[in-house]
Design a protein around this nucleic acid. Structure first.
Lengths: 239, 239
DNA sequence: TGTACATCAGTGAACGCGCGTTCACTGATGTAC
DNA sequence: TGTACATCAGTGAACGCGCGTTCACTGATGTAC
């Protein structure tokens, strides 16, 4: 395909890529709220007006960054989750959770853009944002759809009744998922987001190093929510 | 005291109060990142330069708002938690969680200021922010210090070992708290923050109404984390 | 109570800044014949 | 292959805007005697 591209088309691809790279640098530097078209242009060494050949305005710049960040995160988590044997459902959850956190710690501004406060005056267009934005949760959903090798644990107290569960499943766009598993998955997910947000946004005490052990507990909690009490590990092959 | 105040002192109090009120309105309108001294002055019908008699600059305006929001939230949660009989530990947790969410839903921009993405270029001065910022978590800590009427449940998997727990307790500024209870409390807290953030920042599917049942599950999860399996309710007085 | 001076609150003009976006332009790339 | 025209990318000046902050000022409140 590259061979059939004229100079113009090739350059267009290059500049588009450079634009995105510069925007990411700016995002990392100033955060989403401070992002400006002019700063990106400066970073690229171009006139600000030139960028309007590639984007319609500041809002599209944000949309581009959001989609790109979701894809970067989604790719990262998918890549790591893929390395876990399919049958190891617990391991897959742990891989999702830890790689999610790993990416977030490495890209705090991107994380804030995706999971932090909404940018004022900006509304992300769902039709562009959703496909990339659901990649991580899709991995979770896939876990929830697996044959429950671990018995669906009985123990979430006050599980909502069946009608509410059904409505939740429809609202969450996984109408065929078992309601209890859905609630477990959502709880595990929101707990994960809460743990990472608390860590990155510095809500708790500062000594971030200590948070490793707290995060481990969050992962364990999610594992329990999804799969119940740990089974005897000795059932597997001896170490 | 009011009687001993001269016109100047009285007016100073009035203007200070009006300033804070105007800042809160502006915050609700535009969010923290868009907050500006000039807009607040406009709202008050004063010249922008006049505000510099009351605040040192934009950063202090933010600090003021943060402290004020923490106090508003803290007062709200405290007021509601106080109405629960002291011995009803589970009820106290539920009161904390639901009132925390209630306030947050009613004050989304304030919530974002406190628990959302940090404002770029701004670092809150901990010595002014901490006393108000810990009011809610102090209620949780008080719960954790109560005589464990409910037996400390055994079931968080992979509880960190004793040394790590001790270090965590020191870092969290509650060095005397039992380590397992601390982890439980922190997990309950981050799960709560995650649930509210996911709801307010619109991470999950849009139909927010459904989230009521999801939030109930979060509260139940926290209750389980803090106090273990629900006991037979029939032990109390018949309804 | 009355006057003279000091303190303070608020004004309005001004500064320099960075922003998003438009627009007429130039020069390079592509296309038709 | 060569020329004539069309398309496109990027420039630079300009627009109007809102921002934080400074500063010399005026008029009101407070204080000393």
């Amino acid at each position: 395909m590259t061979s059939t591209m004229g100079a113009r088309e090739r350059r267009r691809h290059e500049v588009t890529a450079a634009l995105l790279a510069a925007a990411r640098r700016e995002l990392a530097r100033t955060g989403a709220a401070g992002l400006s078209v002019r700063a990106v242009a400066r970073d690229m060494g171009m006139a600000p007006s030139a960028l309007f050949r590639y984007i319609s305005g500041r809002d599209e710049l944000l949309t581009l960054l959001i989609v790109d960040a979701y894809d970067d995160l989604g790719g990262h988590v998918e890549d790591i989750e893929r390395t876990v044997p399919r049958a190891d459902l617990r391991g897959r959850w742990r891989a999702i959770a830890t790689s999610f956190r790993g990416w977030s710690v490495a890209h705090p501004h991107e994380y804030a853009l995706l999971y932090g406060s909404p940018v004022p005056e900006y509304k992300a267009p769902a039709e562009r944002t959703n496909p990339s934005g659901t990649r991580v949760t899709n991995l979770l959903a896939a876990l929830g759809m697996e044959d429950p090798i671990a018995p669906p644990r009985a123990a979430i107290p006050h599980m909502p009744d069946a009608d509410e569960l059904k409505a939740l499943a429809v609202a969450a766009d996984v109408p065929r998922m078992d309601g209890e598993r859905l609630v477990s998955g959502l709880l595990a997910w929101t707990a994960l987001v809460g743990a990472v947000s608390s860590e990155l946004f510095e809500q708790l005490g500062e000594p971030v190093a200590r948070l490793d052990t707290l995060f481990d507990a969050t992962v364990a909690l999610g594992e329990w929510l999804l799969f119940g009490e740990p089974q005897e590990e000795s059932a597997g092959s001896p170490a």
